[in-house]
Nucleic acid binder design. Structure first.
Length: 418
DNA sequence: TCTGGGGTCCTAGGACCC
DNA sequence: TCTGGGGTCCTAGGACCC
């Protein structure tokens, strides 16, 4: 059996933990630059505010209904996520952190009443963190996802825990769930399925395997088997990322090479820092620039470039010049840039990799970066940075930012004093 | 005026090998 | 008239996730 634990309205719930006056109030959390809605409390969902709604289009809705609006506070959410995951890891030796607010547990070998075990999770996470969760338990990962939907949709009946442990329960849940809400069925697949009169998850499980394989590739077939109760999607335990990106929409148009170069320098530096944090080196650096895709009066420009590095490295000092070189290739004058990003990929282990015969990363950089990361981590992030980086790393609009209650010492002290 | 960010996996087709 | 067969590796782009 597998359990899928999902935090309810996670970002909104995080804001509530430290500000109980928000309970029962509609809350939305906005993306970077306060651009669009990325999380909503149940009350906000009831007002008809959709996921991804541009904030400026809904300002009057926010005002008339007294919606509490927050800028995304990823320091807070990341820290709360760590706490929740820590608690859940005590319920099984095999856990897969699937996203910031979701976690699979393998319940293999755990001979307890599954429903009661799920209730224990809900109670403990609530008591220790204040975050409400829903738990779905079933013989496969995809069915655990389905069970979680049931638990979340009917909290009064299920007490936020639902177990699928018989074929009757499996079929009942699948006949209830619209096929487009199945984990792994996106817009394109839903379109194909609708064209074949498949509306519910259950009807999808009845389709011939050959059709599913042809129309939805091996991914679709694995999913179908999983929903039939034949476990075909495995747990994934690898904790290291295979690619690391930093991309941002700018708070205004950037028009000169030097302005964009500063952003690329900063993004590369942030990526490199994350790369060192997981003890990897990268072999490929790619970047892109983009103009405003919503502006119909101007021609849209998007260009990316991928650089194969002559050696494996995680040194900011070595990566930035490559990134700037790449930017020179894709930058066009007289355009108004609105977005850019850097991605590092093709990683190897920093402690065990094949060096190149002719060129290699400067070995002194490894120690230098270690010291730099330590100082930036202990004192003030970006206390030590490249001269090509602006002092203000994130030039974002964040007009509704809550305090970093758990990770910023000044904010922590303020909470304690309050 | 204003529209996010960060990931993973799979496949077709090209380039190459003998 | 007729032009082989069997592979591997890589990558861009698409589809999906939260």
């Amino acid at each position: 059996m597998y359990a899928l634990i999902d935090c309810n309205n996670f970002y909104a719930s995080c804001e509530r933990v430290f500000n109980p006056s928000l309970n029962a109030m509609p809350i939305v959390v906005l993306s970077n630059n306060d651009g669009c809605v990325i999380a909503r409390s149940n009350e906000a969902k009831k007002l008809g505010i959709p996921m991804g709604a541009p904030a400026f289009e809904y300002e009057s809705v926010f005002r008339t209904h007294g919606v509490k609006v927050f800028s995304a506070n990823f320091h807070l959410y990341g820290d709360m996520s760590r706490r929740v995951m820590n608690i859940l890891s005590n319920f099984s030796p095999a856990t897969e952190i699937y996203s910031i607010d979701e976690c699979f547990l393998s319940l293999h070998g755990i001979n307890k009443d599954h429903y009661k075990y799920g209730l224990e999770m809900v109670e403990k996470v609530m008591k220790w963190t204040g975050i409400p969760i829903s738990v779905g338990i079933a013989p496969t990962k995809a069915l655990a996802k389905v069970a979680n939907r049931v638990a979340k949709k009917f909290p009064e009946i299920t007490q936020s825990v639902h177990v699928i442990d018989s074929d009757e329960k499996r079929i009942k849940a699948l006949k209830w769930l619209p096929v487009e809400d199945v984990w792994g069925i996106g817009r394109q697949n839903a379109k194909k399925l609708y064209a074949n009169d498949v509306r519910k998850a259950y009807e999808f499980t009845l389709l011939p395997e050959s059709w599913v394989l042809k129309q939805m590739t091996i991914v679709g077939l694995r999913l179908q088997k999983d929903l039939k109760g034949i476990s075909s999607i495995d747990m994934e335990y690898e904790e290291k990322k295979k690619s690391i990106s930093t991309t941002r929409t700018f708070e205004r148009d950037y028009n000169t090479f030097d302005e964009v170069k500063e952003r690329i320098t900063t993004f590369t530096s942030l990526c490199a820092q994350k790369l060192r944090n997981q003890n990897s080196l990268c072999n490929v650096l790619s970047l892109f620039v983009e103009t405003n895709r919503f502006k119909e009066t101007e021609t849209y420009y998007y260009k990316s470039i991928q650089l194969k590095l002559p050696f494996s490295t995680s040194s900011t000092l070595e990566l930035v010049p490559f990134a700037v070189m790449g930017l020179k290739h894709i930058f066009r004058d007289h355009l108004h840039y609105k977005k850019a990003g850097v991605t590092l990929s093709h990683f190897v282990n920093a402690d065990c990799y094949q060096p190149s015969l002719f060129y290699n990363s400067n070995p002194k950089h490894r120690e230098l970066m270690k010291v730099m990361d330590k100082i930036n981590g202990t004192y003030k992030s970006n206390a030590i940075r490249l001269a090509g980086m602006d002092e203000k790393t994130f030039k974002m609009r964040q007009e509704h930012l809550s305090p970093a209650y758990t990770t910023n010492i000044n904010d922590v002290l303020r909470v304690l004093i309050d």
